[in-house]
Nucleic acid binder design. Structure first.
Length: 402
DNA sequence: TGTCCACTGGAAGGGAGGGCTT
DNA sequence: AAGCCCTCCCTTCCAGTGGACA
């Protein structure tokens, strides 16, 4: 096939999608079916700003992944901004996921960038200087700023709740601007990590999100697919299957939407004219794999090496490993690859990280006379781990041995 | 009942990479 | 350019600990 024709084929191939972006994660729909209660709860809190009743309370939103917390927060804040506009009021907002920016410094830097459009150097500045900058930015606006902190548990587990405390207190210092915080977490026990003074000011209001059931998912998927796919492409039965699958996985709407998108892509590639149950089932496997793979690919080198060591243990049949044993394997992996191993103390921290990502489970267990250790276990298939890690060139060799 | 193992996890500090001030 | 101070990632040090075993 001539090079010039490679793309011809892909382009001429009649797409099954009408508007594919409707099936991506950052798409915010026109309305949020089955979340009317939550929408009105958040809206009624934020409405204080519209009524001129001063700063709205900080809000805390809990619920498992894919229950609509993130999209709802963005949705309501957007509505608030546009309603404000009609009343001649200005609001601004910032959205930040602390899973990827989990130090105080980086959170503040991101907020400065998003609210003030000024870039902050990656390191070098004292954190309190960045905090001052943020304060000035907010104050110069002379209006309410809504800060949405998603997956806020990552920040707190990694850096403590000092920053959160400072942010809840910042209104006392600000002269003109005001801040309302919307914290989002899928860790239902999150409160336990917080200092009481933070709970009392951050948890002024809280909204709990329950998982969607199969019927609700079906309805959501049907509405989305009407916009996303050309007519008669997606069979009703396929939507049923997708919603049933997602309902079983704690009602994760995001996963369900992924299923539709990937199923559509599979059908296109296989040059089908319809998306059926078959494609959904194929998509299911692929989506699961992709989530895990992307997570692993994004890992720092040392965590990948650790994961490989866990993979080696899983391969030899002893899935549960004490940290001491894991360290031996990990060190031989490092030797093989020509990397310097990190200390035992550091391994512990890395394991905690991997556990938060859901790639590993671990429990501290006592073996009485034989000491006390964390027992870790790989939660994903060793094969998939290797596949993902192979993308890192210099690890290929070792990965082959698994 | 006490001992003692094999760690865990907090605290402090070092050095690489970097910005700000003079 | 020098000197200072910062963050981030990591190390070193160490007190603390659950429970099998003597």
């Amino acid at each position: 096939m001539g090079v010039d024709r490679i793309f011809d084929n892909l382009l001429s191939n009649n797409s099954l999608f009408k508007d594919k972006k409707v099936l991506t994660h950052d798409y915010v729909p026109e309305n949020l079916p089955h979340r009317e209660r939550e929408v009105s709860e958040l809206a009624s809190v934020l409405a204080a700003a519209l009524r001129g009743e001063g700063r709205p309370s900080n809000v805390f939103m809990y619920g498992k992944s894919g229950t609509g917390k993130t999209v709802l927060a963005r949705f309501v804040v957007e509505k608030l901004k546009s309603k404000g506009e009609t009343l001649g009021l200005t609001f601004s907002s910032a959205y930040l996921n602390t899973r990827y920016r989990k130090t105080n410094y980086r959170v503040l830097a991101s907020l400065c960038e998003e609210l003030g459009g000024t870039s902050v150097p990656a390191t070098g500045l004292p954190t309190d200087v960045v905090f001052d900058r943020l304060q000035k930015i907010i104050d110069s606006g002379e209006h309410l700023v809504v800060i949405i902190l998603d997956e806020i548990d990552w920040l707190v587990k990694h850096s403590g709740d000092d920053l959160l405390y400072q942010l809840t207190r910042v209104n006392n210092i600000l002269e003109k601007g005001e801040v309302s915080l919307v914290g989002i977490t899928n860790d239902l026990k999150f409160r336990e990590y917080l200092d009481r003074r933070v709970i009392s000011s951050l948890g002024e209001e809280s909204i709990v999100f329950n998982p969607y059931d199969a019927e609700e998912l079906f309805d959501i998927l049907r509405k989305r697919s009407k916009i996303a796919f050309k007519s008669n492409v997606l069979k009703e039965n396929a939507i049923k299957v997708a919603s049933a699958i997602a309902a079983r996985e704690h009602g994760d709407a995001r996963r369900a939407i992924d299923l539709l998108r990937v199923a559509g892509e599979i059908a296109e590639r296989e040059k089908r004219e319809r998306v059926t149950k078959e494609e959904i089932l194929k998509a299911r496997e692929k989506v699961e794999k992709n989530v895990v793979k992307d997570t692993i690919i994004g890992l720092p080198l040392q965590e990948k090496l650790l994961l490989l060591a866990l993979g080696l243990h899983a391969k030899t049949g002893r899935k549960k490993v004490k940290t001491g044993e894991l360290k031996e394997t990990y060190e031989s992996v490092c030797r093989e690859m020509g990397h310097n191993p990190v200390s035992l103390r550091r391994i512990n921290d890395l394991l905690s990280d991997l556990e938060m990502l859901g790639l590993v489970t671990s429990n501290v267990k006592s073996f009485g006379r034989y000491g006390r250790s964390r027992v870790s276990e790989l939660e994903v298939s060793p094969g998939l781990t290797v596949e993902a890690i192979q993308s890192e060139k210099n690890l290929e060799f070792l990965a082959e041995q698994l």
